[in-house]
């Protein structure tokens, strides 16, 4: 029978981690600074049969591969009217794409498609990708046809840590390396493409328009940390996933999606205060009222207690500021990604 929480840390270890992370300056178990990311290996265009692909390995052993494939699909209601269109046609404008044209699938080993983690990650990544509306517009071919983009994300290692930043970075790189064949036909006729792959056009044509990146940020009391490792996540008071997009043309960042993630620390067991422990002959089983009193009274936190309540507004504001400010974390991550060569498969 697996333990209920897959956090193999005792209350004493959790308390130790919490104290060291909330001290000033914060002491992380691997000695990083609060905004320092772990080294990673990234390569693109590794799958010759996909329109775009990427593979990223984090230094803790987690690895993900994303493959992007595109298919031509007939636009419903484009050109020929199948139903009598009532109520005017405000909304179905030409050039504006449909959000259904992007299909995202996440495969995590050991979990089914409808388990909590793949559903949440899929929804978050989708939201971020569709946020600026530009992607859907770029998938339009003509009035009758469009591209349907299938983004398939495979997490190759078991989900020991929260895989969101890994999957988001890999998707970002895969989309940057995605190329669509060049259109040769004209107007609204059936699309015909150039067979020469060298003539293909990238989905994100210039440095100005890029897909968003999603970062995982945690707060431990007053400390804010980026790229949390598994033990750090286990003691986090609040975990936030922030998706940012670079404004085309400038170097400023805008936030396109924020989601709070349920911190795993809430599932941990609380430590037993010494007044309740059976060591030294104290009563081994206390009534509920006594346990409550001892736990509540233990305000200084001599033993670990799972966090209650939520995250303050000021903490959220600080987290967002640290991400979007110029020279902040998003700029650092982007700088790191610029070093990755976007190849052509």
């Amino acid at each position: 029978m697996p333990p209920y929480t897959n956090i193999p840390l005792s209350p004493a270890e959790l308390s130790y981690l919490h104290t060291s992370l909330s001290s000033t300056p914060p002491i992380r178990p691997d000695g990083r600074t609060p905004t320092q990311f772990r080294p990673l290996v990234a390569e693109t265009a590794i799958l010759p049969t996909a329109n775009g692909s990427a593979r990223v390995c984090f230094s803790d052993g987690t690895e993900a591969i994303v493959g992007v494939k595109a298919e031509v699909e007939k636009t419903r209601g484009g050109g020929m009217e199948q139903d009598v269109n009532m109520g005017g046609d405000d909304g179905n404008d030409e050039g504006k794409g449909e959000v259904q044209w992007l299909q995202l699938g996440i495969d995590i080993p050991g979990l089914r498609d409808d388990d909590a983690l793949p559903v949440f990650l899929g929804a978050m990544l989708r939201e971020a990708l569709l946020a600026d509306g530009g992607l859907a517009a770029r998938l339009n071919i003509n009035a009758r046809f469009h591209w349907r983009l299938y983004v398939d994300i495979l997490l190759l290692s078991p989900p020991l840590s929260y895989p969101l930043p890994l999957l988001s970075l890999t998707t970002h790189l895969a989309l940057l390396s995605t190329r669509l064949p060049a259109l040769v036909s004209q107007g609204d006729e059936d699309p015909l493409f150039n067979d020469d792959w060298q003539a293909s056009l990238p989905l994100y044509p210039s440095k100005a328009s890029q897909p968003p990146i999603t970062l995982l940020v945690i707060s431990v009391q007053d400390t804010i940390l980026f790229d949390p490792s598994v033990p750090e996540l286990a003691v986090a008071d609040a975990v936030l996933a922030i998706s940012v997009l670079q404004t085309p043309g400038s170097r400023t960042w805008s936030v396109v999606a924020i989601r709070t993630v349920d911190p795993p620390s809430r599932l941990t067991a609380a430590g037993v205060p010494s007044s309740l422990g059976s060591a030294g002959g104290a009563v081994a089983t206390a009534t509920n009222a006594e346990v409550l009193l001892a736990r509540e009274r233990d305000e200084i936190g001599s033993v670990w207690r799972p966090p209650r309540g939520g995250v303050g507004r000021k903490v959220i504001a600080r987290m967002v500021k640290m991400v979007v400010e110029s020279g902040g974390v998003a700029d650092e991550v982007m700088g790191g990604l610029e070093g990755v060569e976007i190849g052509m498969s």
């Binding site: 939201e127 946020a131 600026d132 936030l240 997009l245 805008s254 936030v255 396109v256 999606a257 924020i258 989601r259 709070t260 309540g309 939520g310 995250v311 303050g312 507004r313 959220i316 504001a317 967002v320």
Partner: peptide, 20 residues
């Protein structure tokens, strides 16, 4: 005065704090 869940979508421009 705490927030247990936040879900934000779309481009808020510069006024994210005001939206929250």
């Amino acid at each position: 005065d705490e927030i247990t869940e936040m879900w934000m979508k779309g481009d808020a421009g510069g006024d994210l704090g005001g939206l929250i």
